[in-house]
């Protein structure tokens, strides 16, 4: 049998790789409840799918070994078989059952990861605005009145409500070990609830292609004990300079920057596209926005001084 060997090898190596590497792969090494829900959903689906693969492969190998043409069955004339109602019904109904099981798991886990994780509902979440611009991340802490670029410090065991939006192309905010990603867009704010249950430094990045500097759009998430976190906030307030509108415009216009820290946020002079500042304003009056290509100002036009009508309710984040 020619084909069995390599395929079996492939299958076995797949299983070995899965079991061998799982402890190291970021997505399957969660450090918070959201990522944990997702990794257990993934592992559950992998097990079910492995069973499906096994059934198909066993049947496949059986058919290929048993019914191949040989010298011995030279004159054999295969029969005409129309099909079988029962067999066809079986391989329709069993997949339906599998899909139903997976659907239940999906609906539950999707609800779980969209909301504040179980056990953390009573705590007041820490709101952090994470906004992207070509090609960096701005993190604004409205409660603390501080802002960072390309890194974000968070306290452990406290729900964090990231509010995502963009000063430009669509990006996707992703910290694999804390939870799955969500888009940051210029005309609305998306909410992403994450909790870190372990202290440590986690890899975060934009995972939605957004142009030349996209590959470098990484940031560090540092999860600290609440005490360390408070100390860090106090330090920033004491030592860092204020973020002025001029400084912020300069930041927006610089393609790639390192880490920055400020003791005020850009939200004060350039609010996020939510509530009264959000959504789409149709046919509005700001003539400057037209024919204005090639500068970042476009997005600013969208945010401030808009003639807001009933479209304020377009803020999609409220639909959740």
């Amino acid at each position: 049998m020619k084909k069995r060997g390599p395929l079996l090898l492939l299958f076995i190596s797949l299983i070995m790789l899965l079991s061998g590497c799982s402890s190291k792969l970021l997505v399957l090494d969660p450090k918070g409840p959201v990522a944990k829900t997702q990794s257990s959903t993934i592992i559950f689906s992998m097990i079910i799918m492995a069973v499906v693969l096994l059934v198909v492969y066993v049947l496949y190998i059986y058919m290929l070994t048993k019914y191949r043409a040989t010298k011995a069955n030279e004159g054999y004339e295969p029969p005409h078989i129309e099909g079988s109602k029962w067999l066809e019904l079986i391989w329709t109904i069993i997949p339906i059952i599998i899909v139903v099981i997976l659907s239940v798991v999906t609906v539950r886990s999707t609800n779980a990861v969209e909301n504040v994780p179980v056990g953390y509902e009573d705590q007041k979440p820490l709101v952090i605005y994470a906004s992207s611009s070509d090609w960096k991340w701005h993190f604004s802490y409205p409660e603390e009145g501080i802002e960072t670029v390309n890194y974000v410090n968070i306290p452990t065991n406290r729900p964090i409500e990231f509010r995502l939006y963009a000063f430009g192309p669509i990006t996707s905010f992703w910290v694999p070990q804390l939870g799955g990603q969500k888009y940051a867009m210029s005309d609305m704010v998306n909410k992403l609830n994450l909790v870190a249950e372990h202290e440590g430094s986690f890899y975060g990045r934009n995972s939605n292609f957004s142009g030349k500097g996209f590959a470098h759009m990484e940031f560090e998430v540092l999860a600290q004990s609440p005490a360390d976190y408070t100390k860090w906030v106090d330090d920033v307030k004491k030592t860092a300079s204020k973020l002025t509108p001029e400084e912020f415009d300069k930041l927006l216009a610089t393609p790639v920057v390192g880490r920055k820290t400020y003791s005020s946020t850009h939200l004060e002079f350039r609010p996020a596209p939510e509530g009264a500042n959000g959504g789409h304003h149709h046919g509005g009056g700001d003539a400057d926005a037209k024919n204005n290509t090639g500068s970042m100002d476009h997005s600013n036009m969208d945010m401030d001084g808009m003639n807001m009508d009933d479209m304020g309710s377009m803020d999609h984040s409220q639909h959740e």
């Binding site: 997505v27 959903t41 992998m46 798991v105 999906t106 999707t110 996707s172 995972s207 939605n208």
Partner: peptide, 16 residues
């Protein structure tokens, strides 16, 4: 793997 991707909660980790 397509079925795995179809599960929205897990897709947040696979997407892109």
């Amino acid at each position: 793997t397509g079925v795995m991707l179809a599960m929205a909660s897990a897709d947040y980790q696979y997407h892109n």
